[in-house]
């Protein structure tokens, strides 16, 4: 298997799917000539032409609305929104139109739209370019939410999104673009939604790590291993649908759970997972459900302040250690 970056994995998937299906198009700000501000769409405009790879004005409402209307007519648009922070600019088209089109029509409207969007703090980008808005949209039935954490998942989940039948918010963590990993070459390689991955096995404590938190959670698990604590790491891969069974099975095994995400703690994805565990797995738990997440303030600019607000490897290790060594 080849080792490629998360960014290359996304690029390749778009290239392969556009080559395979003429109905797949890419629209967004600077996705064409520029190749994407994150470089992800690279030479796709050269390869597929300005008709299928379209640079748009800075018009998030029009981007999502156009993707929706085009999907109703049979296309499979990929719409790129440069920063997750900009999703609310397209709020109505995303929440009231795209998410609900199928349901409101009694199931007749088919709207396969993949919204590729970045998430997370890239470092000193401050309050309007650093947010992790996944949880905002978990409260909107009709959307699916993918949070790939590895290059292979970036590829496999994006393929599933593009070939699927539903609107997907595909969150690409900015700090993961340059990370490398093994990615299968099979042109049909896909990762199904709603299937979590066990990234590391352990029996002392479960760490549910979402998206960009996976590398930090793995680091924390290494630290804990040196202390004799075996952490199990579960990566949900998609938040909607959520693989409850895998999370519950891990908690059944360990009896302890830490949920880690970069989104703000209050009503972040961890709140839903914690509530789910409280409803469905409370009997397996030997301690409180602990969340490690961004503090409930806007993301600050200063590195000192930002590092304090964002969850760090140490925070994850401390939380897991606290649970694992807790006297029952």
């Amino acid at each position: 298997m080849r080792t490629i970056t998360y960014s290359q994995a996304i690029y390749e998937t778009m290239r392969e799917e556009m080559a395979r299906d003429p109905n797949v198009i890419l629209i967004g700000e600077d996705v064409g000539t520029f190749g994407g501000v994150w470089g992800v769409s690279s030479d796709l405009m050269k390869l597929f032409g300005e008709d299928r790879v379209r640079d748009t004005p800075i018009s998030e409402t029009a981007i999502i609305g156009a993707a929706l209307g085009a999907a109703m007519m049979g296309l499979r648009p990929i719409a790129e929104i440069m920063f997750g922070d900009f999703l609310p600019v397209a709020g109505d088209q995303l929440v009231n139109q795209l998410a609900k089109a199928r349901y409101m029509s009694g199931g007749k409207a088919k709207v396969p739209v993949t919204v590729r969007v970045t998430t997370g703090a890239p470092g000193s980008a401050a309050a309007q370019h650093s947010q992790s808005p996944e949880g905002w949209y978990m409260n909107v039935p009709g959307l699916k939410i993918a949070v790939p954490a590895t290059p292979a998942d970036a590829k496999g989940l994006l393929r599933t999104a593009i070939r699927g039948e539903d609107p997907v918010l595909f969150f690409e963590h900015k700090m993961l673009y340059a990370t490398k990993g093994e990615v299968p070459e099979d042109p049909d390689f896909a990762v199904p939604f709603g299937q979590a991955a066990i990234r590391r096995e352990g029996h002392d404590v479960t760490i549910v790590a979402i998206g960009g938190m996976l590398p930090k959670a793995l680091e924390a698990a290494d630290m804990l291993a040196r202390e004799g604590i075996a952490a199990e790491i579960v990566d949900p891969r998609t938040l909607v649908p959520l693989d409850k069974a895998t999370i519950i099975a891990s908690v059944h095994k360990t009896g302890r759970v830490v949920i880690v995400h970069e989104a703000h703690k209050r009503l972040g994805p961890g709140a839903e997972i914690a509530a789910m565990l409280a409803e469905e797995a409370i009997g397996y738990l030997d301690g409180p459900i602990v969340r490690v997440a961004a503090k409930n303030v806007p993301l600050p600019y200063s590195p000192e302040l930002e590092n304090f607000v964002l969850p760090q490897t140490q925070d994850i290790a401390e939380a897991a250690r606290g649970l694992a060594t807790r006297k029952l």
């Binding site: 999502i64 609305g65 156009a66 929706l68 209307g69 085009a70 007519m73 049979g74």
Partner: peptide
């Protein structure tokens, strides 16, 4: 105003 961008998207598909 919700339907206006959607019509634009349909027109985009026709043009493309």
């Amino acid at each position: 105003g919700g339907g206006i961008p959607i019509a634009v998207g349909a027109a985009l598909a026709f043009q493309q």
